[in-house]
Simulated scan of single mutants.
Amino acid sequence: MSVREIRVFGDPVLRERAQPVDPAAPATAALVQDLLDTVQLPGRAGVAACQIGVAKAAFSYLVDDELGYVLNPRIDEVRGEPQLVDEGCLSVPELGFPTPRHPFCRVIGEDLEGREVVLEGEGLMAQMLQHEMGHLDGRLYLQALDKETRSIAMAEVRKAAWY
């Protein structure tokens, strides 16, 4: 398949709630391959389907040299008080802001064969899971920022050359 272009802030697909995917559909296998190809570029931890223009419930990840994907995921558990972590997003290029994230997250979904997939972890894995699940809900991480930080972030977005 191929590395796909990342959609940026302002693209309507980023605000759509992802629709479930049929793991057995040939189009789903092609989507998964594109997600896997796209996440493997340097500096990427996760890519949601909406970021490549497809409003479907799927994302790929590459965290601590572990490459994978999940279809139709749902958050099963978050643990711990949210902590501020530096976060950025491929769909909001070149910017990053302290974002509240739970220190542990578990997501349950399925693979292309319909088998259950459980992804969980702390640190970058927990952050990535929460970030990608936000994308599948039609939200960017900017919406998780406190009011003052979000105001600063939006001013930076408006000044960005890509906006």
Rank of each mutant, 00 (worst) to 15 (best):
L41V: 15
T28N: 05
D22R: 07
D64M: 02
Q130N: 07
C50V: 13
L71R: 03
C105R: 14
E87N: 14
L142N: 02
K56I: 01
S151Q: 09
L14S: 14
S2E: 08
D65T: 03
A29H: 13
R17E: 07
F59G: 11
D11K: 02
E66Y: 00
A27F: 07
T38E: 15
A49L: 01
D64E: 07
C105N: 04
V70H: 00
Q127G: 00
V78S: 02
A144L: 15
P100Y: 10
R106D: 03
R15T: 08
R101T: 09
N72E: 03
G10L: 09
G80S: 10
D137P: 07
R158I: 06
L119Q: 15
I75F: 01
D137R: 15
A30Q: 01
E156W: 00
E87Q: 13
R17K: 09
P12M: 15
E16S: 14
H135K: 04
L31K: 08
R158W: 03
D65R: 07
P98S: 10
H135Y: 10
D37N: 15
D65G: 04
Q127R: 15
R79F: 07
A49D: 05
D137W: 05
L41R: 15
V54C: 02
R79L: 13
M1Q: 01
V39S: 13
T38C: 06
D22M: 03
Y61F: 01
P73A: 05
V3H: 10
E5G: 03
P20Y: 04
A27S: 14
P100I: 14
